[in-house]
Amino acid sequence: MSDKVANTEKLDEIKQAGTVIKLSRPISWEETEYKELVLDFDRLSGDDIMAIESDFMDYIKGQKNVFVQFKGEHPGYHAVVAARAAGVNPFMLKKLTARDFLKVTGAAKDFLNGWV
């Protein structure tokens, strides 16, 4: 098998698995250690999107100056979308390094903008 064919097959596997974000350092949450997150946006349904709205309201509770009408630009909203796609608690994402948090939320923002 040529390298080009092998690389194409590997890329197809990654696409099927979702967006893989390798974490710069492992994080433990509820007795599970994460070294990477797989964001499978394709598995999200309309029900998930509706649930994300409610989860976002819980996520920002107590924060000042959050304008819900601009939630599509809020990193907290992106975090909740990414968490749902990864099957993890959105509050766990707050424990990521800033660099990892921005990678994860950036992938969700790209998905919401139709780029994924």
Rank of each mutant, 00 (worst) to 15 (best):
V20N: 01
E73V: 03
G18A: 00
K22E: 09
S2W: 02
E13Q: 06
S24P: 08
P90L: 01
A83H: 04
D3I: 15
G106D: 04
D40V: 01
D100T: 01
A98C: 05
T19P: 00
V88L: 07
I60S: 05
G87I: 11
K4L: 15
A79D: 00
G106N: 04
G72W: 03
K94T: 11
F91Q: 11
I60N: 00
N7C: 06
D58K: 13
R43V: 11
N113L: 15
E53C: 07
T8Q: 15
L96V: 03
F70G: 06
E53L: 03
N65D: 15
E36D: 09
F41T: 04
G106S: 07
Q69Y: 06
V38M: 06
V81P: 02
D110N: 08
I49P: 07
E53P: 05
G46Q: 08
M57T: 14
L96A: 09
Y59C: 09
A79Q: 03
L102F: 14
L39A: 06
V88W: 02
D3M: 13
E13L: 11
S54T: 13
W115F: 14
I27W: 04
L11C: 12
E9F: 12
N65M: 14
G72S: 04
N65T: 11
T32K: 15
K71Y: 06
F101Q: 12
L37W: 05
A83S: 09
K94W: 10
H78Q: 10
P26T: 02
K4F: 14
E9Q: 14
D110T: 04
Q16T: 06
A98M: 09
L39P: 13
N89P: 03
L37T: 10
W115L: 15
I14W: 00
T97S: 14
D110R: 13
V66P: 05
V104Q: 00
E33N: 14
Q69F: 06
A51N: 07
M1W: 11
E73I: 07
S24Q: 10
A82E: 08
D48Y: 02
W115Q: 15
K64V: 14
K103T: 12
K103P: 02
I21F: 07
P75H: 07
K35G: 13
K94S: 09
A86W: 05
N65R: 11
S45I: 02
